[in-house]
Simulated scan of single mutants.
Amino acid sequence: MSRPIAVLFDIDETLVHTGGSGARSWTWAFDRLYGVVADIGEHTSAGETDPQVGRETFRAVIGREPSCDELGRLYTAYLCHLAEDIWNSKDYRVLDGVEETLGRMADAGVTLGLLSGAMEGAARIKMEPGKLGRYFVFGAYGSDSTDRDDIARLAITKAARLHGRELSRSEVYIVGDTPRDIDAAIKANATPIGVASGRYTVPELRATKAEHVLTSLTEPFPDL
């Protein structure tokens, strides 16, 4: 394959480990607004978008559908807590090889984007302690759509607009640590790259038909 023109990265467990900051912030938001204990890990799975996490957890712990106003207040409470908690998260870290990989790509002229199920505000907050936002030109987020496949297509559309033409499958890579990331890349007609830096193993990611699977971003990135 030729060198990619754009590479789109997931955030959680692909670029950074937040040390549970997101889960703590959802728990705080539900407790503050409704006085209930909410563990998102009991009601959602890896790779779901923030709107999915909020809505599904609400259904589980409150027992009904949330209104638009309730979701708005919940998202705001979550983001406000996350903005503080992320700086106090003792286990927060930028994952191995991330800065070196992003730096090499930037030096090679690759346009870097974010493709995250997090709301845009949450995505930016999660990268602040690691100062990773400086590498990324654009992004598509869970606040753009609740469907990760739609987010992937939107990110590719943005990349194409930046370059003034349609981009082929071999020109756009999507990098993530979950089967959902790989599936979204395939459906959006991008080259899927798995990285086993989260809860999924190399064999599990290979089973998803990823084009390449890395154990971490310390390994040489394909075609760069």
Rank of each mutant, 00 (worst) to 15 (best):
P222Q: 10
A6C: 14
D31G: 11
V202P: 01
D181H: 12
S168K: 15
A6M: 06
E42Q: 15
T27E: 15
A123H: 10
M1G: 15
M127R: 03
I11D: 12
G103Q: 02
M127V: 11
V195A: 08
F58E: 09
V94H: 04
F9I: 01
V137D: 00
H163T: 12
W87M: 00
I62Y: 05
V94C: 03
W87S: 03
P4V: 05
G35Y: 06
A6S: 13
S197L: 12
E99L: 01
I5A: 12
D10L: 04
E99C: 02
H43T: 01
M1K: 10
T44G: 05
R153Q: 14
G117K: 04
I40P: 13
A29M: 11
A152M: 02
T201E: 06
D50L: 06
L154E: 14
G54I: 06
F136V: 09
A118M: 07
D107C: 00
P179W: 03
V94A: 07
I86R: 13
T201H: 08
D149G: 04
R32Q: 15
L132M: 14
W28S: 02
T157C: 03
H212I: 13
V110E: 02
T76G: 10
S197D: 05
D150R: 00
A159F: 12
G176R: 15
G113K: 10
A185V: 03
S143H: 03
A159C: 06
P129T: 06
K90M: 10
G142E: 08
L95G: 01
T57W: 04
I5T: 12
R55N: 04
V172C: 14
T215S: 10
R73H: 14
R153P: 08
L167Q: 04
K126A: 11
C80M: 13
S67L: 04
T27K: 07
A140N: 04
S116V: 10
R104S: 12
S89R: 14
R206C: 13
I11F: 13
S67V: 01
A210K: 10
F58S: 11
D144M: 07
E13N: 11
R104G: 13
G117F: 03
